[in-house]
Write a protein that binds this DNA or RNA. Structure first.
Lengths: 335, 335
DNA sequence: ATACAAAAGCGAAACGTTTTGCTGTGCAAC
DNA sequence: GTTGCACAGCAAAACGTTTCGCTTTTGTAT
């Protein structure tokens, strides 16, 4: 079991160095090449990565760091990233970090001891982590996903949330809606701010006065409550943009409890599609993030940095969202 | 940057061996212990795992192997497993394998070269992979999730699908339903067989004649079509058990297209809950897998095997499903 | 033929740990 | 006062590669 480069050397009467050279794609004599390859077959040689890593100080491994408690949205993205990385001959380790602790030194130590070549960081909403600092100090290249780091310049790739929200809002407006609502989670998070900005962009383009806008945000758990308040206003919005997937659930539950029907009584567009949105009655129109492209771009960018190419640092990749029109928006008669 | 055990040795005037001893929890003189710990602090020493791995031939790393194209159901489970493994000081690498190829030698080579201590294998439905053989031959401990391997005895942990289906079906029966349907994906897969068996268990307990049962299965894409056929039968079932999450979506879409209402026109229970099922109108009653427990048990079992404990091999851990009663089942008047 | 550069090969060192086998010290038992 | 034993410490070897510096071979131009 487990033959090594030494066995190959003995078997072929060549030196370690020559075998290693061949294995790393350098030129050697064709006859030796043949000899080595035969020997590898015969002895079933498989390179030992831990030895390679130790000697070369490169591990061809990157780590996806995500906040503890895996929201399964991210789990999905991990699979995508793993697949892309594998194409570059990198392997992926996933690890969660404790976002509630102010100090992530232990996570950094993990990365250092594992000798990872780079990190894909999925920041926590709270943005209070010091991980970015630590990574920078340790000279570990990293790319952020989803959230812009306010604290430090860093590469990041994200959906173009602003444009996505803008497009959805315009769709409301083009269908005659003039009183609009938006419900978000924590409105101070980067993502929410962007989406809200897109919402406002479209509204001001159509000269919708501020008093026709109804914007709520806060805890996800209270979103249903916000929704209830909003819809009970005497002149409530006719269309609401839901700024997050989880919020939409609360909204739909509330609506059905209030016996209001989509889109007759209220039009609705949601961020972040789920397969299941298409199964609702009516199916929900959504702004959907292109997870595949996010994964691809993040991978590409990270590997560029690992290879020492720091052109355009810090780079921001905005990935276009897709707008899937289904049936949750009412075409107003008075349009 | 990056001090080593050698630096600590020099700094403390002790030998490498002593430092290593301390680091691995063996006894050394208290004064030396203090000396070493101070030195570690001062020099910011972090153990190099690649070196440790090379020398000790243990990597404290396990690999989650999942079929290519990450269905995000599995992504979620990966996060759970990672979290448990971390508690045992293991790290997790994820890697996908090509289930369509009959030969997964390259995947095995990856595992061997990475020197992983164990594998959590998520088999493909097709069960045609030779990975289990290869793992066994290479003496890499592994635990299967979800599917029993027909080809080889192996540890596996799975939901108790049969009992779950039995419970759901009984719920139909107890509410007066006597004509029942079940719609599955590929009925020859282990999971589907189990669920169907549970369905039949309950039916035969209530002496439901076979002609009152309506069972369809096949491609997920054609499930909507099966559903359409079933509901158009002159004496169609009054209650249908959906044997998989994705199938339910098709069903609900079809139902709304046919203008049939749940549960008035048809009662429905689905396997595999999604947060969103509770948001449907009406909310869907479901049989839900305890992913957390699956992850926990799989981790525990794998680590036991890694530690050389092969008691009760091959071991099967059946994890109870939970039954969440919502409002998609009609209480029949004639009950 | 001769000189010279380029290519290919070699032995040995290096990467940072753990493990092995040995030595020296102190202490209890006889 | 010797024997024996546990314990701590040490130097050196080992893990399986890559890399360094040097030598030998090959090919080409004179």
């Amino acid at each position: 079991m487990g033959s090594t480069i030494k066995d190959i050397a003995k078997d072929t009467n060549l030196s370690l160095a020559t075998i290693s050279k061949h294995l790393n794609g350098k030129n050697i004599l064709p006859e030796n090449k043949k000899l080595i390859e035969e020997s590898i077959q015969r002895l079933g040689y498989i390179p030992n990565k831990t030895a390679q890593n130790l000697r070369s100080k490169k591990t061809k491994t990157i780590c996806i760091l995500l906040p503890i408690i895996g929201d399964y949205f991210w789990g999905f993205l991990c699979s995508i990233i793993e697949e892309y990385l594998r194409k570059y001959n990198y392997s992926t380790i996933i690890s969660s970090y404790d976002a509630s602790s102010g100090d992530n030194t232990s996570e950094l130590q993990f990365l250092l001891s594992k000798q990872v070549d780079g990190v894909i960081l999925i920041p926590d909403n709270s943005n209070s982590i010091n991980l970015p600092f630590l990574l920078q100090k340790a000279h570990i290249p990293f790319v952020c996903l989803d959230q812009e780091l306010s604290v430090i310049p860093a590469d990041f790739v994200t959906s173009d949330n602003r444009a996505g929200a803008y497009g959805a809002t315009r769709y409301f407006l083009e269908n005659g809606h003039r009183k609009l609502g938006a419900i978000g989670g924590n409105l101070s998070s980067y993502t929410m701010k962007e989406r809200l900005a897109g919402f406002r962009d479209a509204c001001s383009e159509y000269h919708i006065p501020e008093e026709n806008l109804c914007i709520y945000g806060g805890d996800v758990s209270s979103s249903a409550e916000y929704f209830r308040i909003m819809t009970s206003l005497p002149e409530h919005p006719t269309a609401v943009l839901m700024l997050g997937y989880d919020l939409t659930l609360g909204a739909i539950m509330t609506l059905s409890a209030l016996n209001m029907q989509i889109p007759k009584d209220l039009s609705l567009i949601s961020f972040d599609d789920d397969e299941i949105f298409s199964a609702f009655n009516p199916p929900i129109t959504t702004v959907v993030q292109n997870m595949n492209e996010i994964g691809r771009q993040a991978t590409k960018l990270l590997i560029k940095r690992i290879n020492g190419n720091y052109d355009l640092f810090p780079e921001t990749k905005m990935i276009e969202t897709n707008f899937i029109i289904r049936k949750s928006v009412h075409v107003l008669a008075d349009y």
